[in-house]
């Protein structure tokens, strides 16, 4: 994941919808949060979900997460 990916998404898709412009302090914290998000995205994209022993599981993504039955 490119560094700055989440920042680019935020600037293109979210920032224009904000009711107010952000203070300098909040802007600085936001940039940190977006960097942390990039880190999470890196971890998620580095995991090769198709390489696990039961690749079919990867196509069962659902909000009901395998615990709704006894």
């Amino acid at each position: 994941m490119d560094s700055g990916y989440s920042r680019d998404v935020f600037d293109a898709a979210i920032r224009p919808m904000l009711a107010n412009s952000l203070s300098a302090e909040l802007e600085s914290l936001l940039q940190k949060s977006l960097q942390q998000l990039d880190g999470l995205l890196d971890t998620i994209h580095q995991f090769d979900v198709e390489s696990v022993s039961e690749p079919a599981l990867a196509f069962q993504a659902t909000l009901r997460t395998g615990n709704a039955t006894e």
Partner: peptide, 9 residues
Amino acid sequence: QAGLLAGLA
């Protein structure tokens, strides 16, 4: 505040 904003991305 910052974390909630970032989550929208």
